[in-house]
């Protein structure tokens, strides 16, 4: 706890990573969620960016420590370090660019290679406001998410649609898993803020709470 400020009052600290191809809108999802800002002209992310926001989940204050990573292949080797300790992931594709959806599979594999098997994953189809340019159908993505046992939502960082919901849902699910896990192994929330890998329950446990999220605004 020493490394964290006493005035920073929260019950849980969850590390969440944002991944997906370059240009799908990861940074804007982050800025929309943490600062309620959107920019059509944000710079490309090099390496990693970092932001936090605390929200209330059930009766607890959950602080989300969100790591936004560069999308390009070259940066993956470096960003793999950022996965360490992550308990949640938003895997983002762009609904107007099919290739970014196709690559979701690779991202998923990488995520599973580098993180705890019980990490809570949500597939995010961003830029849903660009209806006339849509290249990935909601049904396809939903089916994929069901198959891969991840949550799913479509969002628009520009229109602020579902962004709050998506993050809140992920954090809530993590909280559920962690609280149930805590029942199993004894409550030790103090261990969480140190950024260690948290075992969020056995594989079956997690599956049991997973459902496909709502995709309408």
């Amino acid at each position: 706890m020493a490394a964290y400020r006493a005035d920073d009052d929260y019950d849980y600290l969850f590390k969440v990573v944002l991944i997906g191809d370059s240009g799908v809108g990861k940074s804007n999802l982050l800025s929309r969620f943490t600062r309620n800002e959107f920019s059509l002209e944000s710079k490309s992310t090099i390496g990693v960016e970092f932001a936090t926001r605390s929200i209330r989940v059930d009766d607890k204050i959950v602080k989300a420590q969100i790591w936004d990573t560069a999308g390009q292949e070259r940066y993956r080797a470096i960003t793999s370090a950022y996965y360490r300790g992550a308990v949640g992931a938003l895997l983002v594709y762009d609904v107007t660019r099919h290739v970014t959806f196709k690559n979701v599979e690779r991202w998923l594999k990488e995520l599973r290679d580098h993180t705890d098997s019980n990490i809570v994953i949500m597939l995010i189809g961003n830029k849903a406001d660009l209806r006339h340019l849509r290249a990935v159908s909601t049904e396809d993505a939903k089916a994929f998410a069901e198959r891969e046992n991840t949550f799913f939502m479509e969002t628009s960082a520009l229109e602020s649609m579902n962004v709050e919901n998506a993050f809140t849902e992920v954090l809530t699910q993590i909280h559920h898993v962690v609280s149930r896990k805590a029942l199993d192994i004894g409550d030790d929330p103090a261990a969480l803020p140190k950024g260690q890998t948290i075992n969020v329950g056995s594989k079956d446990d997690v599956s049991a709470v997973k459902k496909v999220g709502c995709c309408s605004s």
Binding site: I46, I78, A81
Partner: peptide, 17 residues
């Protein structure tokens, strides 16, 4: 050691760019 802010988290971008 105290805050464990790995240079990789910030200086990676400083240096490569």
């Amino acid at each position: 050691f105290t805050t464990k802010v790995n240079p990789q988290f910030y200086a990676f971008r400083w240096i490569t760019l």
